[in-house]
């Protein structure tokens, strides 16, 4: 399979999602962009192993995730992750009053165990189904579901989210967070 204009456009079109995932995963924009770059290079050089008609984004996310984890394991041996370093990186963007909630959220997200953070990003934010997330993470669907559950509960603990009765149920957003697809 050659890389025609439509494939090139599809790859370019996937960049914003890949970056959002990589930035949220690594907490570092420069590192995230390196990950995206390496993902595109690998994808281009292994384009023959992509099966046309299957989900290109899922394929690209799988590559990016694998790169992230192999790099993470390497770094981990070099430097022990100091608690809060990731959170600090994520919070370096300028704060505005209205963004405070979001900053709290980013900090809490950063404190999730990596396996929980990544499934929440895949299912709750990137719009992948549990099945696609399982494929990307190369694990069972049940594992994804339980990680998502743990991630949500842990986040709620970190943010001390309480039930607010007067908000009323919002099935649409609830469904989106649960994101069965």
């Amino acid at each position: 399979m050659t890389i025609d204009a439509s494939m090139r456009d599809a790859l370019l079109g996937a960049v914003p999602s890949l970056r959002a995932f990589a930035i949220s995963l690594s907490g570092n924009v420069d590192r995230a962009d390196d990950l995206v770059q390496e993902t595109l290079v690998r994808a281009l050089s292994h384009i023959d192993s992509f099966q046309p008609g299957t989900n290109l984004n899922a394929w690209l996310f799988t590559i990016l995730r694998n790169l992230f984890h192999s790099e993470y394991r390497k770094r981990r041996r070099e430097v022990e992750d100091a608690d809060g370093v990731y959170a600090a990186r994520l919070s370096t963007q300028p704060e505005q009053g209205a963004r405070l909630d979001l900053e709290d959220f980013k900090t809490a997200l950063a404190r999730l165990p990596p396996d929980q953070r990544e499934v929440l990003l895949l299912v709750g934010a990137s719009g992948f189904s549990y099945e696609e997330a399982a494929e990307i993470c190369q694990c069972a669907v049940g594992t994804i579901k339980s990680r998502v559950n743990r991630a949500r509960t842990r986040l709620a603990q970190l943010l001390a989210v309480e039930s607010v009765d007067d908000l009323g149920p919002d099935d649409q957003t609830r469904a989106a967070l649960q994101a069965t697809g």
Binding site: D101, L102, F105, L109, L120, L121, G124, A125, R152, L155, A156, L159, V161, E162, S163, V164, D165, L167, G168, P169, D170, T173, R174, A176, L177, Q178
Partner: peptide, 10 residues
């Protein structure tokens, strides 16, 4: 509700 709020923030 808690889930919805987390989803919105995410």
């Amino acid at each position: 509700n808690a889930q919805a709020r987390l989803g919105e923030q995410l």
